[in-house]
Design a protein around this nucleic acid. Structure first.
Lengths: 355, 355
DNA sequence: TTGTATGCGTTATCAG
DNA sequence: CTGATAACGCATACAA
């Protein structure tokens, strides 16, 4: 009682034709008579024929599917990107296979092996925070697998990359905190090896110095797992809140870090934003549910997925190797959400709280 | 410069053996000498051989992959379920292909066709709120495709189903609102055709009558798109807040409805929960970020994915047709999060607000 | 215009 | 123990 599909053979037998004639008729070949074509097409329609994509893959040595690896689909930033990827992929007849690394280098490797063994035609990937060894990816790339990196890119591999303007985003976020009256701004960052972390840190530092504030290394904390583990954020905050050098605001450089900071600060009794400033790279839709809502750096996620996919399909479908790789930089946007409260914050000097 | 994989042929040629010998050696057949086996295995390892799953699929007429259709992967409830599905699937050597219907019957149909044409061995699906015509699914099922429904099930199709105890969840949520002192409890529900909507509505009504409150049909609002479109929630709330019969609390019967109600109520100046009660079926992790946080009905999502997948794999791998279908009911849990505020709410009578 | 034969990578069947 | 061959579904070069 297995699910049996209709094949080209069934049509050929039923119509007294050869399989090749049927195949050609279905592909609308010029060498088939209109009558035969009509006959075949109508019968195919009637019995609901669909070509077996597995056989096609085997024949054409391509699967018309692309692999996507992200750390976490539950993250709305990534799911928006996936939506962008899917929209372009589907329009071009490609399937999308999604897999999650959950910020683990091991799982990333497994997924990678799985996808390549499934013969995906190309790969769109945002590497996990934990990954330090890119040799497998490099080998894949050297062997001709089209790859596009996005968000968390790998500098060592020469291929297309799509990122947002991390420097500008961090700069804007920090400036917003400064303009809101906060005086001592810390940052909670991703693993320092990540390119995005570096750039965001640079933007943060630049904003401080441009506004005549000094960069204090003790106010810079790293979370190796990007906030996936809440305790690492807790640890970072705990250190920041030590009496000797307390900040009154934080720039959080990633989604999970922003929500992590928020949770911990609120659990400690702070009103955020208000007593304590917080702006971050967070696309979690729900930050707007907060009362007062949180300002965030919005990343053009959907568009990012689209751009990455267009580049990948271009690589896949070009006959000769692509050489002119480029790094597309999309622009972030500061979404100011706590406008009414911000004015208050500006009006009254921020009290030195953190008792 | 395409990505070329190593095949059994390459090994055969390199070792001066036939492809069948190599194939048998790799599968550890008893009829191959230990020396040959060792030779083949070592060489395969060395050149990093992996069987081509596409060729295997063609041969075995199965793809070792299962299709999953949900309305939205960004919804953390569904992404948790997907994690549960993946964990079981991967452990059994199955791949998972995820697709989103985005609450559109059209997209659901397209995904369904796509997945079946990709020869998935089985399907795990939560139908979209919009779907009213289940004939395609029914046909698929009749033709032998193993299907497991979860969350939003289709009563007409005889197969395994996995749901949570919607009745109990709704009953608990409503009771919680009653115990918190709210006097007039409305509900914002999914499309009434959905089985989950019916059951949750029944739980809501039962809780009211069990506590000596009367069911007022004008306090029951439906959102056809399950809150995907914010305006429909807005419309529902607007009607509820009409002067003549205002409620002071809402039981929201789905994730997007809960967050939708929250957003709209807060934008209208209500403190929620507090002035206005709100409990819903919401697994959005971030509801705990709210201040005060929101009590929610937690659904055992991960476990649900596991159970569904186990049932599906059992169907796929059983040689004869499965007949003893069952509907597994998992238990929900009321997560009380606004405990401190709840006491206040209990202590002081809820003022008749809604001015 | 249509049919026949071949190959994509693998395994099963049959023959040595 | 090992090798040759057919088959899975399809497209296509080559024949007719």
């Amino acid at each position: 009682m297995k699910f049996e599909a209709v094949t080209i053979k069934d049509i050929a037998k039923a119509l007294g034709l050869s399989t090749s004639t049927v195949s050609r008729a279905l592909r609308d070949s010029y060498e088939i008579s209109p009558e035969t074509k009509k006959l075949v097409l109508e019968y195919a329609e009637k019995i609901n024929y669909h070509p077996n994509p597995i056989a096609l893959s085997l024949k054409e040595r391509r699967s018309r599917s692309i692999g996507v690896i992200v750390c976490e689909i539950a993250n709305s930033y990534f799911s928006q990107i996936i939506n962008g990827i899917e929209s372009i992929a589907y329009n071009n007849g490609y399937n999308v296979i999604i897999s999650q690394s959950r910020e683990s280098a091991d799982r990333e490797m497994l997924n990678l092996q799985y996808l390549t063994s499934r013969s995906v035609d190309g790969l769109i990937i945002s590497v996990s925070t934990e990954t330090k060894d890119f040799s497998y990816l490099k080998e894949l790339h050297d062997r001709g697998m089209p790859i596009v990196f996005f968000d968390r890119i790998v500098d060592e591999i020469e291929t297309h990359k799509v990122i947002v303007d991390n420097y500008k985003g961090a700069y804007d976020a920090t400036t917003h905190l400064i303009n809101s009256g906060y005086k001592k701004i810390a940052t909670v960052s991703n693993a320092p090896a990540l390119s995005i972390a570096k750039e965001r840190l640079a933007g943060y530092k630049a904003a401080l110095t441009d506004h005549g504030m000094e960069v204090d290394e003790s106010l810079i904390k790293y979370c190796a797992h990007g906030g996936m583990i809440l305790t690492e954020v807790e640890e970072a905050i705990k250190e920041l809140l030590k009496p000797k050098n307390k900040p009154d605001a934080i720039f959080a450089s990633a989604d999970k870090l922003t929500t992590g900071c928020l949770r911990i600060l609120r659990s400690k009794g702070y009103t955020v934003p208000g007593d304590f400033g917080l702006v971050g790279f967070s696309n979690t839709d729900l930050t707007e549910l907060l009362d007062p809502p949180l300002s965030v750096i919005r990343q053009p996620a959907f568009e990012m997925g689209e751009v990455a996919t267009n580049l990948l399909l271009q690589m896949i479908e070009s006959k000769r190797p692509v050489t002119d790789f480029e790094t597309k930089v999309l622009t972030t946007e500061l979404l100011i959400r706590e406008s009414t409260r911000k004015k208050e914050a500006k009006a009254k000097p921020i009290p030195s709280l953190l008792k």
